[in-house]
Simulated scan of single mutants.
Amino acid sequence: MIITSDETADIPVPGASSSMRLHLFRPAMPGRYPGILLFSEIYQVTDPIRRLAAMVAGQGYVVAVPEVYHEYEPAGTVLRYDAPGTERGNALKFAKPVAGFDADARAAVGFLRDHPACTGRIGSLGICLGGHLAYRAALDPAVSAVACFYATDIHSKSLGEGRNDDSLARMDELKAEALFVWGRQDPHVPFAGRQAIRERLEEVGARYEWHEVNGAHAFLRDEGPRYDPALFLQAIGWTLALFQRTLGGHEPAGPAAG
C-alpha cells in the first residue's frame, strides 16, 4: 500500500513546557484506518524508526511517532547511534518524570483518535525505551493492543526521574491484548527480569503473547551489527497479526457529494 510519510504535527501536551512533534505515516488511499502509536528507542525518530513506521503504515495503519524528549531537545532532534547519542538518550530517559511520558502518550492517543484518517481504534508499539512507553500507553483503556519489543526498565522499576516507576504495580490496569518479545542475549533485560514481568502478567490475568528469541538487544533495528532480518520478519508478523485481530481494518471513504 502506498503511503504518505512526510507529515508532522506539533501538538500541545498538558503540563509540558513545549509542544510535542509527531511524525505521521499513513496510507495514501482515502478512507479511515486504525491508529498505531509507535514509540522509538532513546534516539528519537531515526532512519530505522522511520522505516519501521512506514512499513507498518503500509499494512493499513495511521502511525504516529512522538519525539518524547521534546522538553529537552529542539523539534526534529535525532540522536546518533554512537557513544554521545547513547549517553544523551539515557540521560534524558532518567531525567524526564514518568508523569511527563504518560502525558505525552495521552496527548498522542487523543490526537490519533481524532485524526480524520483514523477509525478511532488505537494500538501501541515500541522498541527498547519505547517498549516500556508503549506498555504504559496501553494502560489507557483507549488502547486496545500493544506490542513491546525488549522493553527496558519495567523489571527494574527504574524509568524516569528518580528511577522509581510504577509500571509493574499498575499491570492490573492493562486491559489491552499484549505482545512481548525479548532477545535472550539481551543484557538489558536478563532472565530474572523477564521472569518477573511474566509472573506479574500471570498474577493479574493479562491477555498476552510471549516470545523469547535468540537475539541481541536491538535485533529489530535494521542497521548495525545486531540486526537480524529473519527475526525481524518473524516478529513483525506476530505484531501485525495482533493488530489485525484487535483493531479492525480500513473503512472506505464515503461517496463524494454531488
Rank of each mutant, 00 (worst) to 15 (best):
I2T: 14
D6L: 06
D10W: 01
D10S: 05
P12E: 09
V13D: 14
P14Q: 03
A16D: 12
M20P: 07
F25A: 12
R26I: 08
R26M: 14
P27V: 09
A28D: 12
M29C: 13
P30V: 07
R32L: 12
R32K: 13
R32V: 10
L38H: 01
L38R: 00
E41Y: 06
Q44C: 09
V45N: 15
T46E: 12
T46A: 09
P48K: 06
I49Q: 08
R50Y: 00
R51L: 05
R51W: 02
L52I: 04
M55I: 10
V62P: 03
P66Q: 09
E73D: 15
G76C: 08
V78E: 03
R80Y: 09
Y81D: 10
D82K: 04
A83K: 15
G85E: 13
E87K: 10
G89F: 00
A91F: 09
A91G: 12
A95C: 06
A99P: 14
G100W: 03
D102R: 11
D102G: 08
A103D: 06
A105N: 01
A107T: 02
V109N: 04
G110I: 00
P116Y: 08
A117H: 09
T119M: 12
G120Y: 02
G120I: 06
R121A: 08
G123P: 06
S124Y: 03
L125R: 02
G126T: 00
I127G: 06
G131C: 02
Y135T: 03
R136L: 11
A138H: 09
P141S: 11
S144E: 13
A145G: 01
V146Q: 01
V146T: 00
D153N: 11
I154F: 05
S158F: 07
G162P: 14
N164A: 10
D166N: 11
L168R: 10
R170V: 09
L174K: 08
L174S: 14
E177M: 04
A178D: 02
G183S: 12
G183Q: 14
G183K: 13
D186M: 04
V189I: 09
Q195N: 10
A196Y: 02
A196W: 00
R200A: 07
R200T: 01
E202R: 05
E202A: 11
V204M: 15
V204K: 15
A206C: 07
Y208A: 00
A216N: 15
A216G: 14
A218H: 10
E223V: 05
R226W: 14
L231G: 04
A235H: 08
A235W: 09
G237E: 09
G237T: 05
W238E: 12
T239I: 08
T239R: 13
L240A: 10
F243S: 04
Q244M: 05
L247Q: 06
H250Y: 06
G254W: 03
A257K: 03
